[in-house]
């Protein structure tokens, strides 16, 4: 049973028995991993208080072949994210990011996804109050792109022709539609996954997909629209019918202040 020490982000923590915790981790070297930290719920456990949601650290796991649950023998915090709990908006967005990694990331190691999740949580914690929403959207899109699902914004996903000006974005088809194919979709019915994007909306989405903060701030209405579009895209391409309660929680309410 080799001991493996790897950078890791804590994505989920649940109590196990009277004294232990089961922790779901996104690790750089092992991919998604589950660890059992025995005694971590005891009052005087040195490891227990460190095993909190979203913490980035160095996890030591006693890896056992063909076992899904490895004993977690240590976790040294590099960066705790306790401040994410001081603001329900940041907490909701961080939970959505963690869920994206938990439900959609491959089980194998994926350095780019690990970097996107760890970087996204750090950015969320340090974002200015008015930037929480766009920071969260950019962080989630960065993970989606790292997973290989980059939406097409400049070319029609159906025919490949360039798309300019106002365009329609189909979450199900994975990107922009030219006028001809948007009209065809509308005539055929089933337009629920399609969002109309004026050029400024498309520029905002392009920045977010690139993992950048858009130049213009998002007002509350546009923040809602971008959350819906992201959630719909994830649902169609990554979720495979699995429920995504944290994404729904984030999407459900204006937890964070936006530029009005």
């Amino acid at each position: 049973m080799p001991l493996v020490t790897t950078p890791a982000v804590i994505l989920h923590v649940m109590p196990y028995g009277d004294t232990s915790k089961i922790v779901r981790l996104l690790t750089r070297d092992l991919g998604l991993a589950s660890g059992i930290a025995r005694g971590a719920r005891r009052a005087k456990s040195a490891t227990g208080p460190r095993l909190d949601l979203f913490a980035l650290g160095s996890a030591t796991l006693r890896v056992r072949e063909a076992r899904e649950l490895s004993p977690l023998t240590g976790f040294e915090i590099a960066r705790g994210h306790a401040a994410l709990g001081h603001d329900v908006g940041r907490f909701a967005a961080a939970s959505a990011l963690a869920e994206l990694a938990l439900k959609c990331a491959p089980a194998e190691p994926h350095a780019e996804v690990f970097g996107a999740v760890a970087g996204g949580l750090a950015a969320l914690e340090s974002a200015a109050a008015g930037d929480v929403e766009v920071t969260a959207l950019a962080a989630c899109w960065r993970v989606v792109v790292a997973l290989g699902f980059s939406p097409s914004l400049d070319r029609c996903v159906t025919c490949g022709s360039p798309v300019a000006g106002t365009a329609h974005f189909s979450a199900a088809q994975g990107g922009a539609l030219c006028a001809r194919h948007a009209a065809a979709r509308e005539e055929g019915g089933g337009f629920d996954d399609v969002t109309r994007l004026v050029p400024s909306d498309r520029a905002t989405l392009a920045a977010l997909v690139a993992g950048l903060l858009p130049e213009a701030p998002l007002d509350a209405r546009h923040a809602v629209a971008h959350r819906r579009l992201l959630r719909s895209f994830i649902r169609h391409h990554l979720a495979e019918d699995r429920p995504l309660p944290a994404l729904a929680f984030w999407d459900r309410s204006a937890w964070t202040a936006t530029s009005s």
Partner: peptide, 11 residues
């Protein structure tokens, strides 16, 4: 005093 407990408290 966990992240979830803190978020609940702030809510």
């Amino acid at each position: 005093p966990s992240v979830e407990g803190e978020a609940t408290a702030h809510y």
